[in-house]
Amino acid sequence: MSTYTQCSKEDLRAVKDALDVLNGRWKLQILIALLNGKRRFKEIARDIDGISDRMLSKELKELESNHLVTRVVIDAFPPVVEYTTTSHAKSLHKVIHALKEWGYYHRKEIIG
């Protein structure tokens, strides 16, 4: 078990900023769905149980506005839209891995 380190106001602000960008039930799940490369809207929707098309569209727009997801429209008939993570989003890989590990630990702690 590691020791507790005090946080400054700036540290707390940085954590708040991160949580503001990644808040909610869906954003991290969307980013995880995009870890393996380009995906179309319906492919992402199929990967995430319980998300509505409206919510997925809203969350993708927010992730795009925070430079975590890129939306590319391919000129075809009908038009094809693909989403991918940005290099900025790739900086979250360690965070996602740490959350995954903690999730396994927490599940074991609670369920046994």
Rank of each mutant, 00 (worst) to 15 (best):
M1P: 01
Y4H: 07
T5I: 13
C7T: 04
S8C: 02
K9I: 11
E10T: 09
D11A: 01
D11T: 04
D11W: 00
L12R: 08
L12T: 05
R13C: 08
R13Y: 06
R13F: 10
V15R: 08
K16Y: 08
A18F: 03
L19Y: 07
V21R: 07
V21Y: 03
N23H: 15
N23C: 12
W26Y: 15
L28C: 10
I30S: 03
I32R: 08
A33P: 09
L34F: 08
G37R: 07
G37M: 10
G37D: 10
F41L: 11
F41A: 00
K42Q: 07
K42V: 06
E43N: 06
R46E: 15
D47Y: 07
D49A: 09
D49I: 01
D49L: 04
R54V: 11
M55T: 15
M55A: 13
L56F: 05
L56K: 09
S57Y: 14
S57K: 13
E59W: 03
E59Q: 14
K61C: 02
S65A: 12
N66M: 11
L68D: 00
L68F: 08
R71C: 10
V72G: 01
A76R: 14
F77I: 10
F77D: 14
P79M: 04
P79V: 09
V80K: 11
V81G: 02
E82F: 05
T84A: 13
T85Y: 02
T85V: 15
T86Q: 09
S87F: 07
S87H: 12
H88L: 13
A89D: 11
S91C: 12
S91T: 09
L92R: 13
L92C: 05
H93G: 00
K94G: 14
L99I: 05
K100V: 03
W102I: 07
W102S: 03
G103E: 12
R107M: 05
E109F: 14
E109R: 06
E109L: 10
I111K: 11
